[in-house]
């Protein structure tokens, strides 16, 4: 317990500690780093425009903190890619790249391919549905990495008011964290239970870390990332930063059921890998939920198979690309045209 308490004290930050963006730019220059921002998207036309425009204007044009802003899309059917490109982001359709690895779809797939497509030494991931976007979402998770070389990965936490049509209601979010993740962490990886929002979608880390870990393609990616970084680099390589408030869409409890179903599969894998418990192999990878249709109860089945991508460092195409980049070749990829073409 002492270790968690010390970690909480030493590795928990507030975004206001890093709001001197000029200083962050100077640290970046001193350390000779390239910094990339990735937005994983699927049908986010309502929020992606302002996220891109704000980050580009504030953290590329006003302060040269970011070297690239990239949107990696899972196949949006709306104008997500068109809008993102209009406001100056590089846009890629995930399925157009690393075809030799097979085609999978999910947020984790986009995060994994970001390691391939982006060229930064540090990669920052921000969810693309943040309504109250502000530069603090980026410099809050980046700041600890630039200020302390021991920190390899930083995750966001925040108050979570839920957005309803009638306005906001105070916290009520984080249900999956409190009824699933924190109890599991407390039992099997207790040192990770000090993370306030292990499932938050805003985090930053070094390429040298991301390229060496596996990426579940679905709901389990945030949980697995924490466990793998903790086991590989130690608790002190992880930090968390308070971003004050993040307004997000409310998820129905049933949607959280699907999320938990995916997370559990990832978790069983880690239990076996790191704790030698198991292997625990679910007998069934179909989630059953009960619906009411025409006054009758009806069983609805969702097949949720949490596949995992191998560490990027094991992918030959990535190693070749890394070598190209190391030799100074830039602009390796061309943008996806409105989500229809890749290279």
């Amino acid at each position: 317990m002492q270790n968690i308490k010390t970690w909480l004290k030493n590795r928990t930050y507030h975004h206001s500690q890093f709001n001197d963006i000029g200083k962050l730019v100077e640290l970046k220059r001193q350390k000779n780093l390239r910094i990339s921002l990735c937005f994983p998207t699927l049908n986010e036309e309502k929020t992606i425009g302002k996220e891109v425009v704000l980050m580009k204007s504030e953290l590329m044009d006003r302060y040269p903190l970011l070297d690239e802003i990239v949107v990696i899309d899972s196949g949006s059917e709306d104008r997500t890619l068109e809008i993102a490109k209009h406001f100056g982001a590089k846009t890629y359709l995930a399925s157009d790249f690393l075809k030799g690895e097979g085609n999978l779809r999910g947020k984790g797939e986009n995060l994994w391919k970001a390691v391939y497509l982006l060229d930064g030494d540090i990669i920052i991931y921000l969810d693309s549905d943040i309504q109250n976007i502000h530069p603090r979402f980026l410099y809050g998770v980046l700041g600890p990495l630039l200020h302390d070389d021991e920190i390899k990965y930083c995750k966001a936490f925040y108050e979570r008011p839920l957005s309803f049509s009638t306005g906001f209601k105070p916290s009520g979010g984080g249900r999956t964290t409190e009824i699933l993740i924190r109890p599991l962490f407390s039992q099997f990886f207790p040192e990770l239970s000090g993370l306030i929002q292990p499932l938050s979608g805003e985090f930053a880390g070094y390429r040298e870390v991301f390229e060496k870990i596996r990426f579940p393609i679905g709901y389990g990616v945030e949980t697995s990332m924490l466990i793998d970084i903790y086991m590989g680099w130690g608790l002190d390589a992880i930090a968390q930063c308070d971003l004050d408030q993040r307004i997000h869409r409310n998820q129905e409890t049933r949607a959280l059921g699907k999320m938990s179903f995916g997370i559990l599969q990832t978790f069983w894998n880690r239990l076996y890998q790191f704790q030698n418990i198991g292997p625990i192999e679910p007998k069934n990878l179909v989630l059953n939920q009960v619906d009411i249709k025409d006054d009758k109860h009806e069983l609805v089945e969702y097949s949720i198979v949490e596949k995992e991508r191998r560490p990027m460092i094991e992918v030959q195409e990535y190693l070749d690309l890394k070598a190209k980049r190391a030799s100074g070749e830039v602009n390796v990829f061309s943008d996806t045209e409105e989500g229809n073409q890749g290279n």
Binding site: E45, H86, N132, S163, G167, F168
Partner: peptide, 10 residues
């Protein structure tokens, strides 16, 4: 206390 979030379209 109203929702002041802004949407940017093209």
């Amino acid at each position: 206390n109203l929702d002041h979030n802004i949407l940017i379209e093209d």
